[in-house]
Design a protein around this nucleic acid. Structure first.
Lengths: 259, 259
DNA sequence: CGGGACTTTGAGCTTTCTCAACGATGGTGG
DNA sequence: CCACCATCGTTGAGAAAGCTCAAAGTCCCG
């Protein structure tokens, strides 16, 4: 509703500070992800268990049903999370960007091994920081602040998930697309003071197929809905991966079926 | 997939033990909800801030957008959680039963006041144990075990939410109903050793409208899907609020689109 | 026994999907 | 530098799943 624009926002946006010494200390996501909750001393001990990796487009990070061995902290790029049915139908459950932690949701209690309950693939090139679950989980009990942060993250994702259920269960195609564009703009921190009146440019790293599988429709429907929004003067599409919101407020009214 | 039947299960099922002294000590949900994580001593201090209430059918516990003042621990009955659009469309995001904690998801960081992001109503008569967020939140920092339990709960709900997204975004009406029946059976702890071969009776406290709004279809579609399942010999409908699963395995194959 | 709320069933309609063709775009090699 | 090719996106026409509207059937409760 009124605070739709709050939902998909990543929890941490301050990329400013930079340390300099060890692997973790000069990480771009140092003050973005949960690493912030580990004190510097402990960061040193964690750094030993950490791998920084660069993944090519399409690279599979996580496959549903495989043993959950790692956490992934995304430092650059975008990842799609999804679940699939045996006949190939796919539902993308979220897009994760810099500062997001991957691997929280596994079957069984959080403290036990378990298996991943989703798959994850890189969209475009992705930089991640990977560490074993075994190395982080003990830290949880040691640093309550870390657990608190994980709880905040989980709670936040839960709210976004419920908003998405409303979208998938009850919104029309065009409302879904409008809602997505606004949520994406908000997540990119483009709404510091609420939804603005004027125009606003968005970069969409994902392709139409991803969008379709995220919004529970087909690529043709995505294409037609975007066309419709363009025809109504609500957006422009300068490039395939770029959308200009011409009237964000009107888009919001459409997304929430106000009027 | 294979572990669909794991998802909707409440975390705690052992209703056996009974204490006897104070308000909390003889609570039926004492070893079911998160109270288990508070030591007995602290339970006493919490008991002072607790109200046990009995709610009539249809009673609104929580209204979306209002300040989040309380946590609710459900001790008996079933509650529907939902989000609604201004024009009245409604999406039920979950059904909560005995042992479930309500009020975790609010806007803003978990430690701040914030507002509820969902509404909640009693289905049938519901018994709850209500306490203020203000009284519980300090306990979080004090008892890390409590925070851990909340994290487990949130993680578990997140998995269920993602499973539901797959259902809402990609499954047909009949697959949705089949999936729901299995998830509900599992949640009622009827699958201790996986999905059985033989028949199995379920009580459905909610009406068709609730089912429809949970599964993202209309009541007519629910009715037709149940009729279809009956015609195929997969279920029986002795009463409106009772379903007999005649062939749970076949139902599971249908729910996951296997074959 | 009657009334209201809920459920089922039926008929026609709408939205979205499917299938197919066409168009754009970006990368590659000549 | 351009032409070609593969991939991705758009557009159109017909089909289908599910929705809407309407009527009849059930069930519960007083």
């Amino acid at each position: 509703m009124a605070d739709l624009h709050l939902h998909e926002r990543p929890l941490f946006k301050d990329l400013a500070h930079q340390a300099s010494a060890a692997k973790c200390m000069d990480c771009g996501a140092r003050h973005v992800g949960l690493c912030d909750a580990l004190c510097d001393f402990d960061m040193q001990t964690l750094a030993g268990a950490v791998q920084r990796l660069t993944l090519p487009p399409g690279k599979i990070l996580v496959e549903e049903g495989t043993p959950a061995l790692h956490f992934y902290n995304i430092t650059a790029g975008t990842v799609r999370l999804f679940k699939a049915l045996p006949d190939g139908r796919r539902q993308i459950t979220g897009f994760m960007g810099a500062g997001h932690l991957l691997g929280l949701k596994v079957s069984g209690p959080a403290a036990e091994p378990g298996h991943y309950v989703f798959s994850a693939e890189a969209i475009g090139e992705v930089h991640i920081c990977r560490f074993t679950r075994a190395s982080l989980l003990p830290k949880l009990t040691q640093f309550p602040a870390l657990e608190r942060k994980l709880l905040d993250v989980a709670t936040h994702e839960l709210m976004a998930a419920h908003e998405q259920m409303l979208l998938l269960g009850r919104k029309t195609a065009i409302e879904r697309v409008a809602s997505f564009l606004l949520a994406w703009a908000d997540r990119m921190a483009l709404f510091p003071d609420g939804i603005p009146e004027g125009k606003l440019t968005l970069d969409l790293p994902m392709n139409r197929m991803d969008l379709a599988d995220y919004l529970g429709v087909t690529i043709e429907t995505i294409s037609r809905a975007l066309g419709q929004l363009k025809k109504r003067g609500l957006i422009e599409l300068p490039h395939i991966h770029e959308v200009v919101l011409l009237a964000p407020r009107k888009l919001a009214a459409l997304a929430e079926a106000v009027s």
